[in-house]
Amino acid sequence: MKSLLVKFGLLFIVALQLSACSSGFGIDGRRGVSSSLVDYLYPEGQVPPKYEETVPHLRLPLTVGLAFVPSEKNSAYSLPEAKKMQLLEQVKQKFSGLDYVRDINIIPDTYMRSTKGFEGVDQIARLYGLDIMALVSYDQVAVSSETKSSLLYWTIVGAYFIKGNQNQVTTFVDTAVFDVNSRKMLLRAPGVSEAKRSSTLVEVDQVNRAARGEGFELAMADMSTNLSVELDRFKARIKQDKSVQVSRREGYSGGGGALQWPLVMLLAGLALLLGFRRMRSAGRQQS
């Protein structure tokens, strides 16, 4: 009986060790990284100012600043600076050909961290000579869960060869475009993505990192497409509601072909006169 108890005790310790060994690999549960536009623009609980009836004035072509909103905490899940620059470069490439955009400047994270709030944005705008600023905030959640096949991790060898972990990464990015002078938001465009990858236990970290990178790439691509649509809508909207005043710097133009009122009145008068004469002559022919 005593030896049986000893055997059970040993088995329990081995099982415990294996379990500890298994949970020693990779990540567990739900982790993520995010940055908040509101927290960045209104730090330390600042209250946004009351709505003002100022009309933003855009002088085309525009110099645009493009940056990620810095996250509050730097963690292992934060996007590396090099990756951020690479993602922003892709967005820049897509929009730098626009006729009403003179230049797009990518603002490094380090510049953004120095001063928060609109004061920080103003400083950067002065430094780069920006007219508008596009700030990209994000929220990414990475979940790694074990599937039924993870049971084979208990064999230890399974931890190396059995893909018993499902790594799911959900990413949301949101670009808000601000007029620097009036500090008003002109438009915003979101982008979402969901990346799923399975992995062995020992590869969880590596695969999760790759999925997080892919998640950002897909979300930024989605955001770029949405931003393009939003820009078209914005152009149509401001022509109608005049919520933004647009003027053109020298050497840049756009407009419509139109006849002015005096000429239109002259043509209309001539048309009426001819119509009247035609009707009279038709009446004479009938009689």
């Binding site: 022509k239 407009g255 139109a258 239109v264 043509l267 209309a268 001539l270 048309a271 009426l272 119509g275």
Partner: peptide, 27 residues
């Protein structure tokens, strides 16, 4: 591009002109 306009006044001016010209040359 020739058949859309910037705003209602723009549309009205061009539409009136188009109709007047058509009326003048209609026959």
């Amino acid at each position: 591009g020739h058949f859309v306009h910037s705003h209602a006044s723009h549309l009205a001016l061009n539409a009136i002109s188009a109709v007047a010209l058509y009326w003048i040359f209609a026959p």
